[in-house]
Design a protein around this nucleic acid. Structure first.
Lengths: 109, 109
DNA sequence: GCATAACACAAGCAGGCATTTGTACTTATG
DNA sequence: CATAAGTACAAATGCCTGCTTGTGTTATGC
């Protein structure tokens, strides 16, 4: 078991466009659920549900302040996704690209 | 319309664990469908289906060679995902993290 | 032209997930 | 305790999607 199992929830969470919109909404700073719902154009219940998914995926953190619940981006979860993607470009992206294309030419020749 | 619509297919494609396994299987170099299916433990039809999804998402490229169909990673699609993720860490990851945590303390105080 | 290998396409089924609707919980106020 | 604001939880619904099964398509060998 590697980082695959760890980031599986994060990948599935990021697959939804509304959840990515939520992450962008709280990117600048923590915001309550109601404000987030208004920004992304979803109901309070749906937004709360998505925030729970993002929370369990390690992509968002919550903090209670009175009757409100402020949510913010959790950099740790996104760092895991980033390192996963980075694993596909050890050094230079162009190197891999040219390597692949040269294989196509080999196959053609 | 920004990069959100463009990368939506890529995000949904990467949400599936088997498709990520397929990407890792063809990471070193182009391979035929049968070999990929054997590596990831899926049927030929299912693997072909997933490769089609990855192809439409811009994450994999295919090339016919006789009766075989070689697939390889498409760096362009993954680059789009990478730039999306990078957008959450403009400079230093730790800066955002401490900024968020300091807001929590403000809220508590 | 026929058989075989490798792969893609299509229909059907089952599970997962996003959304809605309704409601309970927590906190502040009087 | 009663009320209002903000949010989370639960059931129901409809859609999307991954997998299976069956079949069509393309290329090689005889």
């Amino acid at each position: 078991m590697g980082a695959e199992q760890v980031t599986d929830l994060a990948w599935r969470a990021l697959a939804d466009r509304n959840r990515r919109a939520i992450l962008r909404a709280i990117r600048a700073g923590p915001q309550p659920v109601g404000a987030i719902a208004e920004q992304v154009g979803l109901s309070q219940q749906t937004t709360s549900h998505h925030l729970g998914v993002l929370r369990k995926a390690g992509l968002a953190t919550g903090h209670r302040e009175g009757t409100r619940h402020l949510f913010a981006v959790d950099p740790d979860g996104l760092a895991a996704v980033r390192s996963y993607v980075d694993d596909f470009w050890p050094r230079k992206l162009s190197d891999l690209k040219t390597a692949v294309e040269s294989r196509w030419e080999k196959a053609d020749g």
